[in-house]
Design a protein around this nucleic acid. Structure first.
Lengths: 339, 339
DNA sequence: CTGTTAGCGCCTTCAA
DNA sequence: TTGAAGGCGCTAACAG
């Protein structure tokens, strides 16, 4: 039914080995004449290599696994798309694993991926779990399996590890500086979980900006959210008796919650309160008051993650790669100058 | 390094075949004693089957392919999540293929999937391409490869085919009837591409509602969009000199465009104009004026798609399965009663 | 009830 | 420059 290298061998009167050699472009110098013959026959017969056979023989599968908490989240979907595009460019495949933040399910996936001789795994852990025991255990599992691993926004670990990272300290600084330069001095912050590196870095940046501009820092203006829409709403409830002219939400989803939270108190954006988000979710340019935000190049990070993984497959004994990405302030309508 | 059935065979003093038999729960009755022994050894040695070997031997891979235009689109991401969850429940994997609406890339994917001995493929074609020659060619390609295929919202074809479908005629009817029952008589419609079955069905439903309630139909109140945000904006521009009190956009994304388009003309929702969307995008409950919409059970459809595919793998010679899903009107704040 | 045998399709020595 | 042979890990016949 399906044509194999044997068929091509038969058709050309050559041996399967020779056919394999030319089909894989091996340096073993084959005469141009036979090469042509093989290629012609392969095209003629519509040859496609059987990846199970290749995989069994070589132990490689030319596919990567992506483990994310929830593919419906635009953030992860964008990352997935980046990886997927990079894979496609190089003829690789991507296996999608959505864990719902369940570490046990994550573990199962890792084992399935190993069974499939996956060549590399990219993991983005769900916020509340990062740094937990079960997550570390899963990471160790991957490492022990000797499968290349790329993480996102996670540099600190007991040993160096491949990663794609943004300088969130700088991101926090940029957002805060933007507000300060607009004349805001009373700024409220709705953060992510403090256990998350990305969140604590942002916060450090905020404090540094306050310090640089000689503003007094006040922990009471802080609400610790969890990156969900609801946390934005709750944050405004919590902060409602404070006095502020601006809010910096540590991601766009919470900023949307802030919008609606403020509306509840009849406060409008940006007239009464300026709002800055973080991520540049695709909706942020679309909503009625377009959101000023810090853009993360998630798509590019996904691409790079795939590239690192593929590179590691070819060069297993190289040092861990950490690629840094730039953040960018996108000024829209949700922030305004005050006197 | 990795333990194989041979290792287990050696450890237990049995043959690889026997080990395989118990590990796969084959009906060939094996004594409980040896079964126990094998299972114990497998656990002991941490055995995991090599799926490349299984795949090479059996021609099956226990994985499905999903081909979508863009995983960043919440609609497709939700479908993917449904499939992924169903796969996970049964120990299968999902390979993600995002085509960007490029038929050539779609074709490449199909061939890659075949090379991987994929057991089934779910395709959701990008709107402008549905029904085009290249798309039909790709579908034929899959069919010719004898790989089970599931489509979404696509029933009409020259031969019956597995599908998960909503009755969009009814959906169009429900949305229109809702507006009519609220007193609206001058309703504008922003449709999807007329070449799409889902869009033309909705439109038929709208017309039927008008007919049932004795309202005159007017083609001038129609704008053909393409399901993008921009189309919603454009639609309002196009309709700006018409007289209407309500708009029915054929998906939520276009409804968001309608919101902002109306704002441009200083029209507010729902005071001046009522708006109905379609899909129930996750943002529709979140935005400042929550959107009345028709909910499609996309997630469930994804689950069912995976189940159909897996079923087809076990029962290749059964008749095509078409599963219908119910639509539901979700009334929120974007529609109001007028006198 | 269990073991033997024979490949699935491919790649990789090694020999010619 | 090419061919022959062996085996990756597993399963399906067929024996015993």
């Amino acid at each position: 039914m399906k044509t194999t290298i044997k068929d091509i061998a038969q058709a050309t009167g050559l041996s399967p080995a020779t056919v394999s050699l030319v089909l894989n472009n091996r340096p073993s110098r084959i005469s141009d004449a036979t090469r042509e013959r093989v290629l012609a026959a392969a095209a003629e017969l519509g040859y496609r290599s059987n990846s199970a056979a290749v995989s069994l023989r070589t132990g490689r599968s030319y596919s990567l696994g992506l483990i994310v908490p929830d593919i419906r989240n635009d953030y992860y979907a964008t990352y997935a798309k980046g990886m997927e595009d990079a894979c496609q460019e190089m003829g690789w495949s991507l296996i999608l694993c959505s864990t719902n933040g369940n570490p046990e399910r994550e573990r199962q996936y890792i084992e399935t991926l190993q069974a499939k001789s996956i060549d590399g795994i990219a993991v983005v852990t769900t916020p509340p779990l990062t740094g937990t025991q079960s997550f570390e255990a899963n990471r160790d599992l991957i490492l022990r399996m000797q499968i290349p691993l790329v993480q996102m926004d996670l540099t600190g670990y007991r040993e160096p590890i491949n990663a794609v990272v943004c300088d969130h300290e700088k991101g926090g600084y940029m957002a805060t500086r933007h507000l300060i330069s607009l004349g805001h001095q009373k700024i409220a912050f709705i953060t992510g979980p403090s256990s998350l590196e990305g969140s604590s870095s942002r916060l450090k940046g905020c404090m540094r900006a306050f310090h640089d501009y000689g503003l007094p820092w006040d922990d009471k203006m802080l609400y610790e959210g969890d990156y969900t829409y609801a946390a934005g709403l709750d944050g405004i409830d919590y902060l409602s008796d404070r006095d502020f002219t601006a809010v910096f939400a540590f991601n766009d989803l919470m900023a949307y919650g802030v919008y609606n939270g403020l509306a509840k108190y009849s406060l409008s954006v940006p007239e009464d309160v300026s709002v800055v988000g973080y991520d540049d979710h695709f909706l942020s340019s679309i909503i009625s008051v377009p959101l000023t935000t810090i853009r993360q190049p998630i798509y590019e990070m996904g691409k790079e993650a795939a590239r690192i993984l593929i590179y590691k497959t070819e060069h297993p004994d190289t040092k861990p790669v950490i690629t840094w990405f730039d953040l960018k302030l996108i000024v829209r309508k949700s922030t305004r100058k005050i006197c």
